[in-house]
Design a protein around this nucleic acid. Structure first.
Lengths: 160, 160
DNA sequence: GGTGAAAGGTCATTAAG
DNA sequence: CTTAATGACCTTTCACC
């Protein structure tokens, strides 16, 4: 980390956008489309990965296509001092895709998936069936008008 | 959607896990490690992508490394009939990474990021500054004990 | 820049449901 | 009989030195 606010420039932004839209193209093809030398692209990619801007190129798996079309968000109230145990418990549940601790009364926000609305009950029971979880409120996700995205942010950060 | 073959088998699961852990290895290397023919790996990959199980191989961008280390979740209450307008408005905000409609009183759940806690105020103002948004409550994400993951689900779905 | 190596495609054969 | 896996061959393309 060289500077505290290391920003990315326009070339970085274009590179990320290009790779996001057509991930299977290689370094050489990128250099052609961006009108820069291939070494430049290679260097930028290495730098972006070294700085953690690009985490990796893992395949994006869709839980719905795996047979888990139901998404829900659960807010959990945790009793004092039980946080770590609850984390370990939640991390052991495959249907727990994501867990954040949030501001509030020792609260956690959990993203869970299930095979059906009926199955969601089973998942919730498993999630909240643990000492230290005082209260839980669940909201089922109906639609997803804006699926997870980062590109608009990349373009803003790179000043395009 | 409810096709009888929407399950993945053990080979699919191992393939996804292998590609998730080491995305840089190619099809040929996968075939060697999994002890199957290269054509098999390619056929499985094509099938997984055709069925939507694997969405793509886009680079994973970390908003924090982009200069947006603050994550928050906002729950919005929408007045009747304004849903579509609100969606378009939220989709136009780069800091809005994700938007779900959820069960409740015409509610939406929004995942947003900001450059700092102070900057979060600006983002929230922009998010909620729109006719049709009746009320908003925001929770700042403090820690992320379980970052978004799908592998445990893949292993469960493939019966490993 | 040049070169060894992979990706991507097709094919016939074989195995299994 | 339908679907899938396999190994062989070929051409283009890329990654690495």
């Amino acid at each position: 980390m060289h500077s505290p606010t290391d920003a990315i420039d326009a070339l970085d932004g274009k590179l990320i956008r290009l790779l996001s839209e057509e991930p299977r193209i290689g370094v050489l093809e990128c250099s052609r489309r961006l009108q820069v030398a291939r070494g430049t692209v290679q260097a930028r990619l290495d730098r972006l990965q070294a700085r953690g801007v690009i985490g990796g190129f893992a395949p994006q798996v869709d839980p719905a296509a795996l047979g888990y079309p139901v998404t829900a968000f659960a807010t959990l109230e945790i009793s004092q001092g039980q946080g770590m145990d609850v984390r370990a418990h939640l991390a052991a549940v495959p249907e727990v895709l994501e867990l954040h601790t949030i501001t509030g009364h020792g609260d956690m926000l959990v993203r869970i998936v299930a095979r059906s609305n009926a199955d969601l009950q089973r998942v919730i029971d498993r999630v909240v069936g643990f000492d230290g979880i005082v209260r839980a409120s669940t909201a089922i996700a109906l639609e997803n008008p804006v699926p997870y995205r980062v590109l608009p942010l990349v373009e803003q950060a790179s000043g395009e």
